[in-house]
Amino acid sequence: MVTEEQVDQVIAEILGSYRKDRKNLVPLLQAVQTKLGYLPKEAMKGIASFLEMPEVDVWGVATFYNQFRFVPLGKYHTVVCMGTACHLAGGRLILEALERELDIKVGETAEDGNFSLERVACIGCCMLAPVIIIKDKIHPKITPFKVEEALIPYKHEAQSEKS
C-alpha cells in the first residue's frame, strides 16, 4: 500500500502537466495508475477536485474501464488470457488451476502481497494459446499441470525473501 503522502506527491506532480479539461480525465487516471500501480481513493478525489467535477463521476468512469484497478497488484502479478483461442485450448481449466495454486480468486491480491491474479480478454498471441503471464514473462502453451511448475520459481523467491 502506498501512503497518503506518496499519493499527494504523485498527484501534485501529475496534475501539473495537464490542463483543467474533462477530456483529460482518462489520461490522468492512466498516469496515476502507471505511477502507483492502482488508483487509490485519495488520488481519484484529488483528480475530481482538480477537474471540478463530482467525485462520483470520476468513480463512475474509473470503474467503467477494464484497465483501472482499485487494489495494489501483487509482486508477482499473474495474468491469464481468456481470449477465444485460449478458451478453446482449455483456458478455463488454466484459470481454475491458478486460483487453486495461488489460493486467491481472479481479481484478488494475496494477503501477503506476493501474487495477484487477473483475467484479460486477449493478449493477442493466439498461436501460443493457452497463455499466461507471470511478472511480465509469457508462458506459452500452458497446461494445468505446467501452471504448478511455472509458479515454483516465483514461490521460491517469495519464500526466500521472507526468511
Partner: peptide
C-alpha cells in the same frame, strides 16, 4: 482504457470526451 464497446463509433467519442 479498455472497453470493448468503445469500438462503437458514438461510444468511442464518449470515451474520448472523458465519459463512460
Amino acid at each position: 482504457a479498455g472497453a470493448f464497446v468503445s469500438g462503437e463509433a458514438t461510444a468511442l467519442v464518449a470515451a474520448m470526451e472523458g465519459r463512460r
